[in-house]
Amino acid sequence: MLLTQLPLGVISEVVSLEAEGIKRRRLLDLGLIPGTQIIAKRRSPSGDPTAYLIRGTVIALRSEETNLIKVR
């Protein structure tokens, strides 16, 4: 499933990144490599972006990015 669809509070694992170029690099910089644990923490009042717990850090990502991340 896409990271965008991940319900809040559920622990999941990155399967693959569909992003290319600079976007892919940004996501890799955050440590989003296959196998990384990721949990959706909270959504902004308007529903987007969503904050995720990645490697002990809370990082907000827009749906444009999370639509390019596959998790399970």
Partner: peptide, 11 residues
């Protein structure tokens, strides 16, 4: 179009 956006929410 907007480029990628990542924002840390520090403790």
């Amino acid at each position: 179009i907007p480029s990628s956006f990542t924002l840390e929410l520090p403790p």
